[in-house]
Design a protein around this nucleic acid. Structure first.
Lengths: 138, 138
DNA sequence: CCCTTTGATTGATTCACTAAAGTTTCTCGA
DNA sequence: TCGAGAAACTTTAGTGAATCAATCAAAGGG
């Protein structure tokens, strides 16, 4: 690696560190852990099977079971069996969950704050570079 | 936020997610948790007081106590009192710790892999943009 | 010398995560 | 159609990370 790449690696580290810390704080504002906030974020439109969530979050299914259980007791998500295949449990976000998710999103100012430091031109440039870096994602 | 910024925010999220996952995996290769690997990374040249580590890692001092304790029993770090101020414990990395740290660094291919997808020109460009984004770090 | 502050530890609790069974439901082939 | 096996989720047990409150020991200041 060249010196440029070394400095760049450090910058990426700093970015990730700051980003993670900011996300933790945003989740905490809503009384959630980062993992819980992340789960809410993955509950799009309707309802999703546990297994899908596990693979998206890249963690064990039993981990999702526990996460969902904790959040279910707090009324943030709901579990309903899939009538077509009763092995499958569909997880959906409740209105209360939607509220909490809104709070998290509102408190997570990091991206908009930092990206606002760049001009439109620069943002397009950065997007292009990140696209190239992430292109062949494993 | 514009549509460009939205897409960009998603790209940054993806980058951070992939980065975190890769770091976890690299640490695991060396039999460490991410937190432990991170601690080793903060043990530069000689030895550092616990308190300094806590503030750098942005966590409670008691958390560092536990981390260091676990790693001390595994012979990766050492604790020595500071003769000038005997309240202070200085943490240093052992030769074994250095070995393990080398393994982590070797297994953490994410930055070099991804940055290698960019030309020198593009890397300089990215570095400039990140510098601007991280400039006024809180 | 007390008294306060500082640095680190201890104890208790919660959450995230993993691994290893265990349960229910489905599927498919004989 | 029945039974073996797979699939999807749950349970249990154990570990690590993290935080908070309380404690302890050493400095330092009046």
């Amino acid at each position: 690696m060249t010196e440029v790449a070394d400095a760049l690696a450090q910058q990426v580290w700093d970015l990730v560190f700051a980003y993670d810390a900011a996300y933790d704080r945003a989740a905490q504002v809503a009384g959630l852990s980062a993992a819980q906030a992340c789960l809410l974020e993955h509950l799009a439109g309707d309802s999703r099977p546990m297994g899908e969530l596990a693979s998206e979050l890249q963690c064990d299914a039993s981990n999702v079971t526990q996460l969902v259980s904790r959040m279910e007791t707090r009324g943030l998500v709901a579990r309903t069996p899939n009538p077509d295949d009763r092995r499958i449990k569909l997880v959906s976000i409740t209105p209360a969950g939607r509220d909490v998710r809104r709070v998290v999103r509102g408190a997570f100012e990091f991206p908009s704050e930092r990206l606002a430091l760049l001009t439109d031109q620069e943002q397009r440039l950065l997007s292009g570079l990140l696209g190239k870096m992430l292109g062949a994602t494993s």
